[in-house]
Computed example of a mutant assay.
Amino acid sequence: MKRALLIIDVQKTFTHPQWGKRNNPDAEENIKQLLDEYRKKDEEIIFIKHVSKNPLSGFHPNHEGSTFKDIVKPLETETIITKEVNSAFIDTSLENHLHERDIKEVVITGLTTPHCVSTTTRMSGNLGFTTYLIEDATAAFGIHYKETFIDAKTVHTVSLATVHDEFATVMTTGEYLQRL
C-alpha cells in the first residue's frame, strides 16, 4: 500500500512564549525519525505549512516564525502544501495530490494536536484514507476555557482519544516504525 507522511505546521512560531508550556518536548525528534525513515525508503513526504493573511500573526509569510523548524526542514524536492485554515484538506491540493499518487495510507505528525493535527486526521479518515496519528510526534499547549485552565498533557490525551479507532489508529513512533 502506498503511503505518505504528513508533517503539519512544524514552524518556528510555536517556540514563541505566547503559546505557553507544551507537552511532548521530543515531538520534533520523533518526527525526524519518521522523516529519515521515509527518506531512506523514498516514500512520499508532504510538509503542510500554515500561512496567515494577518500581518501580525507569527504564521504570516513575512514573519520569521512562519518558516519550518530546522530539525524537519523539507528538501527542495519534497512537497509543501500551504493552508490558511486548520485542515490540510480544505482549499488545498492535498486530497488530489494523494489520489494522483494512489496513496491509501496517511501518517500524521506535527503541531498542534487539538487543532490542525486532529482536524486533518478527522478529514483524512472521513475521506477514506487509512490514517495513523503518531502520538509522540505531535504536541499540544495548555488551553484556557472560561475559568478553567486545561494543561497540555490533558489537551493532548483528550485530542488523541477523540480520533482513535474512529478516524485513525493512534500509535507511537516506535510502534509505527516497527510496522514499516
Rank of each mutant, 00 (worst) to 15 (best):
residue 100 E to H: 03
residue 53 K to P: 11
residue 94 L to D: 08
residue 63 H to Q: 01
residue 54 N to G: 09
residue 150 I to F: 02
residue 99 H to A: 09
residue 4 A to E: 11
residue 92 T to Y: 08
residue 137 A to D: 03
residue 31 I to Y: 02
residue 57 S to P: 07
residue 123 M to K: 07
residue 120 T to E: 13
residue 118 S to Q: 00
residue 9 D to W: 15
residue 159 S to L: 03
residue 117 V to T: 05
residue 32 K to A: 10
residue 74 P to R: 00
residue 126 N to P: 06
residue 31 I to F: 06
residue 65 G to K: 05
residue 22 R to D: 06
residue 4 A to K: 10
residue 22 R to G: 09
residue 106 V to A: 14
residue 99 H to S: 08
residue 174 G to D: 10
residue 75 L to Y: 12
residue 129 F to H: 03
residue 17 P to G: 04
residue 36 D to R: 06
residue 180 L to K: 01
residue 106 V to F: 02
residue 94 L to F: 05
residue 64 E to S: 07
residue 124 S to L: 11
residue 24 N to L: 09
residue 166 E to V: 14
residue 100 E to V: 12
residue 170 V to G: 01
residue 33 Q to T: 09
residue 62 N to I: 00
residue 118 S to F: 08
residue 179 R to P: 05
residue 89 F to Q: 07
residue 133 L to D: 00
residue 1 M to R: 01
residue 127 L to Y: 14
residue 83 K to W: 10
residue 48 I to Y: 12
residue 12 K to M: 13
residue 48 I to N: 09
residue 20 G to F: 02
residue 83 K to G: 03
residue 136 D to Y: 06
residue 17 P to Y: 02
residue 114 P to T: 10
residue 36 D to L: 15
residue 87 S to P: 13
residue 52 S to L: 14
residue 61 P to T: 02
residue 81 I to T: 02
residue 74 P to M: 12
residue 135 E to H: 14
residue 162 T to V: 15
residue 69 K to W: 13
residue 162 T to N: 04
residue 17 P to M: 00
residue 170 V to D: 05
residue 142 G to I: 00
residue 174 G to F: 13
residue 94 L to C: 10
residue 119 T to F: 09
residue 56 L to M: 08
residue 94 L to V: 07
residue 11 Q to R: 15
residue 60 H to T: 05
residue 85 V to R: 12
residue 92 T to K: 07
residue 63 H to L: 04
residue 167 F to T: 01
residue 179 R to K: 12
residue 24 N to G: 10
residue 97 H to K: 13
residue 92 T to E: 00
residue 152 A to L: 08
residue 73 K to Y: 12
residue 174 G to K: 12
residue 98 L to H: 03
